[in-house]
């Protein structure tokens, strides 16, 4: 028998249902990857005028819807059978909310893809520069927000929240630009409106990324920063 004293606190014990939580996390990450891919492919379809790709994006949305349902089921199951407490409880709640955000991101991708199909029938209004740029920014935000889910990193989450402003600015800029196109030539109006909506969609995607980042802060710290302007403006940290 060893004479060493027992450690004060027993080492972390793995429970048999940890695997369920792992599955839950994995499904959420898969959902994030899928929604990012959907948005990226929708924008690619728009830029390349690739109708087939756009249609594929529309069809693939079902995947995300199924994942959302699955995540909700798992969350409810976990809450009713495993009685999660503290971080686990927040994880499950945040997971449900984030899955809803990701599903909405998927919907925006579908909306972009549908507009891409319509826009593909006409020549482009102008070379697509700002929209891919905005998309890249929004998707980076989304990816960073999801990264926080893997490695708890509130700094990164706060950075995501602060970047939302840039996307909003870009959206406003594009809005003014497109308005001037419409004023110039009424023939541009339908295309400009489609592009406006696409820009708005991307802006919405960035908003969802912001939501997810806020949820990640809640997950890590148990603190709600959703309507805390100080955090958004960088005056204070959560």
């Amino acid at each position: 028998m060893s004479t060493e004293p027992m450690p004060d606190f027993p080492p972390h014990m793995k429970r048999f249902f940890d695997a369920e939580l792992e599955t839950f996390r994995t499904h959420l990450i898969t959902m994030g990857e899928t929604s990012i891919r959907q948005v990226r492919e929708a924008i690619k379809a728009l830029v390349d005028g690739d109708i087939a790709l756009a249609k594929k994006v529309v069809a693939a949305d079902d995947e995300l819807d199924q994942l959302e349902i699955k995540i909700d089921e798992e969350a409810v199951r976990y809450m009713s059978l495993r009685a999660p407490i503290a971080t686990e409880l927040r994880m499950v709640i945040v997971g449900m909310k984030a899955s809803h955000d990701l599903e909405r991101v998927g919907d925006e991708a579908v909306s972009i893809a549908k507009r891409a199909v319509r826009l593909a029938a006409e020549p482009p209004l102008k070379p697509y520069v700002d929209i891919p740029r905005m998309t890249t920014m929004a998707l980076e935000m989304l990816r960073d927000a999801l990264d926080c889910f893997l490695h708890i990193d509130t700094e990164k989450a706060v950075a995501v929240i602060r970047r939302d402003e840039q996307v909003d600015q870009l959206n406003k800029q594009l809005y003014r630009e497109l308005t001037s196109f419409m004023v110039e030539n009424p023939g541009n109006i339908s295309r400009a409106i489609e592009l406006m909506f696409i820009s708005k969609s991307i802006e919405r995607i960035a908003d969802h990324a912001t939501n997810i980042a806020e949820e990640m802060i809640y997950l890590a710290k148990g603190k709600d920063v959703r309507h805390d302007d100080a955090v958004k403006k960088g005056v204070s940290n959560p």
Partner: peptide, 13 residues
């Protein structure tokens, strides 16, 4: 946009 590193999560059976 660069594709990110694959997410290293083991999917349990």
């Amino acid at each position: 946009m660069e594709p990110s590193a694959p997410l290293a999560i083991r999917v349990p059976a």
